[in-house]
Nucleic acid binder design. Structure first.
Lengths: 173, 173
DNA sequence: TATCATCCGATATTTAATATCAATCACTCG
DNA sequence: CGAGTGATTGATATTAAATATCGGATGATA
């Protein structure tokens, strides 16, 4: 369902709104249309900028409100990664993400094998698992391209002690 | 390594600091000690409040700085979930999390089977996967206890159209 | 078209996190 | 043990993300 073409998703959204007696405003249409047409996962700010040309007066607050509403009715999901604002994902079915540690891009990934991950036995702890989601962390193609831009997680901290080796010698500053 | 007892982790931290010529300040000790002694994953603010009694003058900025430094040298990892501030996790090895959708508690989970998740074939897209991490979403024991406090994700939006059924009838309010 | 609940835009506010800078402190070396 | 040096600290200001408020506007229904 989260992978249907944009028009189908808009139609689904309109149906949902009518069912729930939620007004179908131009703001809501525009925000949803933008997010479902994007391959990546825009932040609220990106949505705001992108929608302004078509809806000149739209306010930031409305974008936040509409996005939140779209999440609540199940048209979008939120994804989040340390260091960046929350992003919105038009796919609500189970799928997973590649997260670039360098540019924070979030890329969808789907693989039938990933739907057969065993659930941990947490009954002893009384936790009820509803769903799961895998973050694959790494470096995306674009960032691998621009070499030597070191990933945040591997940035050396401090300076090596002169005369002592503490593992591989840190090269640059 | 992320599961060693607190004292061992503190010792490891001191070794790291000496190796990298990073000053070993009381603030750094206190912050690290607090996080490694906690079962849950405190936010920067929680760390700040908890450390104040022992280190009355510690500033919020220092807590942020110290936590950031501890992440960079590999003593902690950041975990994040939509709707709450970043949390800090003393376990740096591969492990996974139960995320309560209601109270946002984050609970560690480890299961050898979860270390054998197949990596998706993303070579075509040029993404280099370094590691992965699974979020199991659901409701924790404490929240299951206080019944009828509806989970955020299942909160009905809008009102059902009178006379029409749109799936399971919404019961409360 | 009239009615009414809801939503929108503008604004202010909260919260999380970062930047700046003088004074202090930890570490090293003599 | 004491001085020198560079990084850290605390205070403050600032940025950024997200939410709250409220009068006026708008969509849905009849």
């Amino acid at each position: 369902m989260g992978t249907d073409p944009p028009d189908s998703r808009i139609a689904c959204f309109e149906r949902l709104c009518r069912q729930r007696r939620l007004p179908l405003t131009p703001q809501r249409r525009a925000v949803l249309r933008f997010v479902v047409e994007r391959e990546d996962h825009p932040t609220a700010d990106q949505v705001c900028e992108a929608v302004r040309p078509q809806l000149p007066g739209i306010s930031r607050a409305s974008v936040y409100r509409v996005l939140d509403m779209l999440v609540r009715i199940g048209m979008l999901t939120k994804v989040c990664h340390p260091g960046s604002a929350v992003r919105f994902d038009p796919r609500v079915g189970r799928h997973h993400h590649l997260v670039c540690l360098q540019c924070e891009r979030i890329i969808d990934v789907e693989d039938p094998r990933l739907n057969r991950v065993p659930l941990p036995d947490v009954r002893g702890r009384g936790f009820q698992i509803n769903d799961y989601h895998i973050h694959f962390r790494g470096i995306c193609a674009a960032c691998l391209g621009k070499k030597n831009t070191r990933a945040r997680t591997t940035r050396p901290v401090g300076r090596p002690r002169a005369g002592h080796r503490t593992g591989p010698t840190n090269r640059s500053r």
